[in-house]
Design a protein around this nucleic acid. Structure first.
Lengths: 299, 299
DNA sequence: CCGTTACCACCTAGGTGCCAATTT
DNA sequence: AAATTGGCACCTAGGTGGTAACGG
């Protein structure tokens, strides 16, 4: 008697796996395109970057806070991105005057900093696991009348594979990176945004999921376990006045990177301090907090 | 320590209250417009309707199945809409040849029929209550390349107020209708859809909420308790090739009505058979099913 | 008297880390 | 030995009707 299933699949905003080409041609609709490229380590982009502060340091293994964020030591709740680079590294990036005005700040910087000091780890599972902390950003300098697509991806930081030395409580290089995986873009499900929306409200990527399943069909971002990654946030100005087939110039992209959001993908937490910090700060893990668990001991 | 709040409000797809004017000018973005009109009883539209089968019968109090649906007696899982009318009743509706091809069917017809036979009731609360059954429709005849906005609203069936006679188990007219309420359109949060999406997948209005709070700020649909209502589904072809300020012609609308979805808004269920059917068919009410409740008696 | 409200127990749905078992 | 998996208890978040209290 219970009413559950229906003949047709229901529309949902799950299909968020996009190729860059699909994005360009479709202009950000929620269709799923099978075309998938593979991404190369961030190092390659960095070499071509024109940033004042070289991103090369990002490739170092050390994850203990030199990149605590551009606002390190300040009490600001949000962090400005260190640098921008193009989604597709073609020629040196010269964003249009209009796009150059756009700024993006990380709203959850304080929490990210705490994790970053310890060396952030993110669980990846076959079915997909959310990130914690969540990437939440806000924009300024956008045209309130224009429309924008906001998306994120996650790129390798280097070509290394890591392992955790429990007795030393530190990460060690364990060899060369595993073969690259299908690159996936996570288009924020509320895209396209009006500039007005972006100025008023924060964009949260809480629903993005990470997986180690190379054959994932849900559009989750696929990562290699025991590798280091850097999330990136991209904003694209949508041109809707013409048929939008591949006429998107690179100046219409902006990419923002927050170094304090680097993390190592794992299938089980390695550093116990990370586990503790996750339990203490993620509401969904409340069941594992000290007070609850002390009662277990008291029994 | 727990991470919860953030300085900026988070973007969500909650703001779904639209005026028709706002829809036309914004082309279906998710902004909230305060402009609210009041709607008039369905009767007024019906008079101007050019439908073959007069909708006038809809205004009759009887809710016991003469309108079991256009497919009455058939075992089809979905129902075709009986008739279409314009969102704004101006001149007799002559949809463009293209829009005339569009058909819309009710995917949940079987369940709706069961409720309709008993006289469907929907709870309305201050904070907003979902509809059960849910309005789920699928479209055919749309242009797979075009973009469409899909929305619903709920209009009064007549100018009457009702009361339920428990001893007779039937509804009686209790007087003239209360003053009309702000008219609200619920734009499906996944709008705009591509025609391709609409052909593939069903559109579900499961998230729409009904309220009796005239000052509701959440964009829920506002109804008068003890009044009869008819949900309507609208589809608008989106023209994005020009600046879209009020140049939407009425031919670009289509409206679909499923008579088996009429209901009476209530703050508490009146007909016990409706209560039982809700409990038996809504998964969220499983806690009230016979087997669970018999154990209460067994105590 | 009838209609509305607030709170409740009981669900669905799904996000946590834990842990034992399994795989490589 | 190291890494992965699946089931689990325990949460968050929120959708049900029941029920007693309230209010016109």
């Amino acid at each position: 008697m219970e009413f559950t299933a229906s003949p047709k699949p229901q529309l949902s905003s799950r299909a968020n796996a996009f190729s860059i080409a699909a994005l360009m041609s479709s202009g950000g609709s929620k269709e799923k395109e099978a075309t998938e490229n593979t991404i190369k380590p961030l190092e390659q982009f960095v070499e071509k970057s024109s940033c004042a502060q070289p991103l090369g340091e990002l490739t170092s293994l050390d994850a203990h806070g030199e990149f605590g964020g551009s606002g390190a030591g300040s009490s600001s709740p949000s962090s400005s991105s260190l640098c921008t680079e193009p989604l597709i590294p073609t020629t040196p990036i010269i964003p249009s005057e209009e796009m150059a005005k756009i700024a993006c700040s990380l709203e959850t910087k304080e929490l990210w900093d705490k994790f970053h000091e310890l060396g952030t780890e993110m669980i990846i599972t076959k079915s997909g696991r959310r990130m914690f902390p969540t990437i939440r950003v806000s924009f300024s300098g956008v045209d309130s009348e224009a429309k924008y697509i906001v998306l994120m991806d996650i790129v390798p930081v280097d070509n290394k594979r890591y392992r955790y030395a429990y007795h030393r409580s530190s990460w060690l290089v364990a060899g060369k990176a595993d073969p690259p995986l299908p690159a996936r873009l996570y288009v924020h499900p509320d895209s396209p945004f009006t500039g007005e929306q972006l100025l008023k409200q924060m964009v949260s990527f809480e629903k993005v999921k990470l997986t180690n399943n190379e054959l994932d069909q849900h559009g989750h971002i696929i990562l290699n376990s025991m590798h280091k990654y850097q999330p990136r946030v991209h904003i694209i100005k949508k041109k809707d006045h013409t048929a939008s087939l591949l006429n998107l110039k690179s100046e219409e992209f902006r990419t923002f990177i927050f170094p304090e959001t680097v993390f190592t993908a794992v299938t089980a937490y390695q550093n116990q301090l990370i586990t503790k910090l996750k339990i203490d700060s993620n509401p969904f893990a409340k069941g594992f907090r000290d007070s609850s668990r002390l009662t277990d001991i008291e029994r």
